[in-house]
Amino acid sequence: MTSPILEVHNLCKSFGGVVATDNVNLQVTEGEIHALIGPNGAGKTTLISQLSGLLTPDSGSIFFQGNDITGLPPYRFSQAGLARSFQITSVFQELSLQDNVALAVQAHAGHAFRFWRNARKDQALQKPALDYLSRVGLADRADWLASEVSHGERRQLEIAMALATDPVLLLLDEPMAGMGKDESAELIDILNRLRGTKTLLLIEHDMDAVFALADRISVLVYGKVIASGTPAEIKSDTRVRNAYLGEDDN
């Protein structure tokens, strides 16, 4: 645990009078798995979207590895080393799993102004692509189309794609959403294996998953971070219990 890799200062975002992000301050430390929890409508996805550049905050700033990246276009966020997965699975449905990951490998490798050589026979692309697929347990599905595999497998694919851009920080928006128990367990396992090599910021509803994974937790309610701390601290925090855990869990 060293310095914060991601620092968010006084971030605000509202949509036509509705405040979705209200003066949020957040710090993610290098190497940790940081979970962001909160009730529905707390503004978690809005926050993640700002952290990945898809939304531009109204005010406040985002520092990543010491650089101010507020307001840059989304592809610059990714180039800076922030990768995200989406709450609603977002992959290239018409392409094979291997092509999906190859695109991410290629994106990380730099420009794609190569018009002649067959990318599907390009070992510099396909070998790492296959490698990332096997890391999430999808190697045997490599030539299937993304539209042909199960929902859980598409989520795994998303993580493989995010990993393929070799990010410093992974933003995962409800990776377990819509998964069965077995699939969730497998994904928790995959994410656990990333511990220490990547920094993870994850939004999750599944509290079992959160407490199984997170080093630290931040609680977002009505656009505000009301608490940040270790799982034990969060569990015993009365504000959190009142605002969130109390009414939701037991």
């Binding site: 898809l54 989304p74 592809y75 990714s78 018409e94 190859a102 695109l103 290629q106 990380h108 067959n118």
Partner: peptide, 24 residues
Amino acid sequence: HSRFGLTLQGAKSNEERMNAIGVN
């Protein structure tokens, strides 16, 4: 079948995702 073509097909399929993996 080139990298360029793959990129175009990716953009056709899901441009938001292309942005998210760092492609303009």
